[in-house]
Amino acid sequence: MTRRALALTMLGATSLVMALPAKAQDAAKSYPDKRINFVVPYAPGGATDVGARLLAQKLQESWKQTVTVENKPGAGGVIGNDFVAKAAPDGYTVLIAITQIIQAPSLMSKLPYDVFKDLAPVTQIAISPIVLVVPDGQPFKSVKELIDAGKTGKFQYGTFGNATTSHLYGELLKKNAGIDWTHVPYRGAAPLLNDLLGNQVTASFLDFTTAGPQLEAGKIRPLAVGGEKRKPKLPNVQTMAELGYPGFEAEGWLGVFVPAGTPKPIVDKLSAELARIINSPEGTAGLQAVNLVPVGDSAESFEKTLKRDFERWANVAKTAGVKGE
């Protein structure tokens, strides 16, 4: 009787294990059969919001299913990230996040979620280049001139917020170059840009989406870019690494996540369709129009990027001595 009961239990467990993949496949076949909600953990109007709305529109057209965009700003993105991390893992609540999501663990002592345990990567949307700029009213024509001035006199550099990529880059240069400049954090890139145009801050590491139109207008001047390579729209602007300053290889990006536990067939289906949209002529043009560099990769590829960049930003935060509030 005992052996028979044990055999029946094992048979039932085996049947359940075999049924789970089949159930996941069935769910993927019917997905999506209701509204999909894209959650943006920042206010409307920024690069993250623009990218999310572009993808939402194209996904809605492709899948003939409603795709909404919901802005949940607060705590530097933590509120929106946490909302998705705790949502049902069914593919209907989707996070459009930025690099902050893997920078935060090295900057904050406590987070309500674990990016590697509570969220699953779907695809990297695009890279958001960072440009070291000065107002046209400043005399500096190179990074060397800026650094030389920073060694002999105090000046201010602006960022789009404390413990952001802009801040990390600024403090890293301060440490590496031995310059004395004061950090002035702003509540976003837009107010920072206004003070740059007014020549109220000497320099800034600014995202290319915000900086692009003013660079074209000649109102601010590019001195260098972050990342491993030069940017197609700024081919003559050297990288920080080319100029002899390592540590600026990690870049900002936009990426898509779903709650951990979302069936892999659903993750793969969403990843493939979003990657197709991103790499389509319309998707690429839409992202490039706001000076983003399209990526559109697989979930597996994006996961490798996350692990690589997590280590990179941890090293930058440690070297720069930056901590979140």
Rank of each mutant, 00 (worst) to 15 (best):
residue 273 E to F: 00
residue 179 I to D: 11
residue 57 Q to Y: 04
residue 2 T to D: 15
residue 191 P to G: 04
residue 22 A to Q: 14
residue 69 V to S: 09
residue 225 V to D: 09
residue 264 K to W: 08
residue 173 L to E: 11
residue 3 R to I: 13
residue 320 A to T: 10
residue 220 I to F: 01
residue 144 K to L: 11
residue 15 S to R: 12
residue 21 P to H: 08
residue 212 G to E: 13
residue 257 F to E: 04
residue 249 E to I: 01
residue 1 M to E: 13
residue 325 E to C: 13
residue 165 T to C: 10
residue 315 N to L: 13
residue 282 E to V: 00
residue 55 L to V: 01
residue 94 V to T: 04
residue 93 T to V: 02
residue 129 P to S: 07
residue 263 P to G: 03
residue 15 S to G: 12
residue 146 L to G: 04
residue 197 L to P: 02
residue 44 P to K: 14
residue 56 A to E: 12
residue 47 A to Q: 14
residue 34 K to C: 07
residue 122 V to L: 09
residue 55 L to P: 05
residue 16 L to N: 04
residue 181 W to S: 14
residue 108 M to V: 10
residue 266 I to Q: 05
residue 18 M to H: 03
residue 117 K to C: 11
residue 310 F to C: 13
residue 165 T to V: 11
residue 149 A to L: 07
residue 100 Q to H: 15
residue 180 D to P: 04
residue 64 K to A: 12
residue 3 R to T: 08
residue 79 I to S: 08
residue 291 N to S: 15
residue 2 T to M: 14
residue 267 V to T: 04
residue 67 V to I: 05
residue 164 T to F: 05
residue 15 S to D: 11
residue 110 K to F: 09
residue 6 L to V: 04
residue 36 I to S: 09
residue 92 Y to N: 15
residue 1 M to P: 06
residue 62 S to P: 03
residue 137 G to M: 03
residue 225 V to M: 08
residue 191 P to S: 01
residue 76 G to V: 07
residue 284 T to W: 05
residue 57 Q to A: 09
residue 55 L to T: 05
residue 281 P to W: 01
residue 205 F to K: 01
residue 25 Q to W: 10
residue 113 Y to W: 05
residue 262 T to G: 10
residue 21 P to G: 05
residue 187 R to D: 15
residue 56 A to W: 06
residue 65 Q to W: 03
residue 237 V to D: 08
residue 102 I to Y: 13
residue 163 A to R: 00
residue 294 P to E: 06
residue 288 Q to M: 14
residue 229 K to S: 14
residue 89 P to I: 00
residue 152 T to C: 02
residue 100 Q to V: 02
residue 149 A to P: 12
residue 202 T to D: 09
residue 143 V to N: 08
residue 68 T to A: 10
residue 264 K to M: 13
residue 253 W to K: 05
residue 91 G to P: 10
residue 146 L to R: 02
residue 115 V to R: 05
residue 76 G to S: 07
residue 249 E to Y: 00
residue 196 L to T: 02
residue 296 G to V: 01
residue 262 T to H: 06
residue 64 K to Q: 15
residue 225 V to I: 09
residue 133 V to R: 07
residue 201 V to K: 03
residue 122 V to S: 10
residue 18 M to D: 11
residue 187 R to L: 14
residue 27 A to L: 15
residue 300 E to S: 14
residue 109 S to C: 13
residue 184 V to R: 05
residue 204 S to E: 11
residue 112 P to V: 05
residue 208 F to C: 01
residue 84 V to L: 04
residue 224 A to C: 06
residue 215 L to A: 08
residue 280 S to A: 05
residue 147 I to T: 06
residue 37 N to K: 15
residue 144 K to I: 11
residue 133 V to F: 05
residue 89 P to Y: 02
residue 289 A to E: 12
residue 33 D to C: 12
